[in-house]
């Protein structure tokens, strides 16, 4: 798998597991940012919604059908 490094791989997981895994990390706290890879647009949308609700900045980038998501703490 070429491409960028990431902290959490939620590729191929059914709803709502990706959101749940991200939420667990958000709840326990993390440093500055969290990068995630998914292969599903729906998952990308769901994690984006979760991030915004929880007050994190959210960015996503698509590369060859993979979505690289970046959550960061808003200062």
């Amino acid at each position: 798998m070429n491409g960028k490094p990431f902290d959490l791989d939620v590729r191929g997981l059914s709803c709502p597991e990706p959101v749940l895994r991200v939420k667990k990390i958000l709840d326990t706290g993390f440093d500055k940012q969290l990068s995630i890879i998914t292969d599903s647009r729906v998952t990308m949308e769901n994690i984006g919604r979760l991030a915004r609700h929880a007050g994190f900045a959210f960015a996503s980038e698509e590369q060859n059908g993979q979505y690289y998501l970046l959550l960061s703490k808003e200062v």
Partner: peptide, 13 residues
């Protein structure tokens, strides 16, 4: 077992 919290910058599998 649930996913563990990833080491910073590390790739979690």
């Amino acid at each position: 077992s649930q996913v563990s919290i990833p080491a910073r910058g590390g790739i979690v599998s």
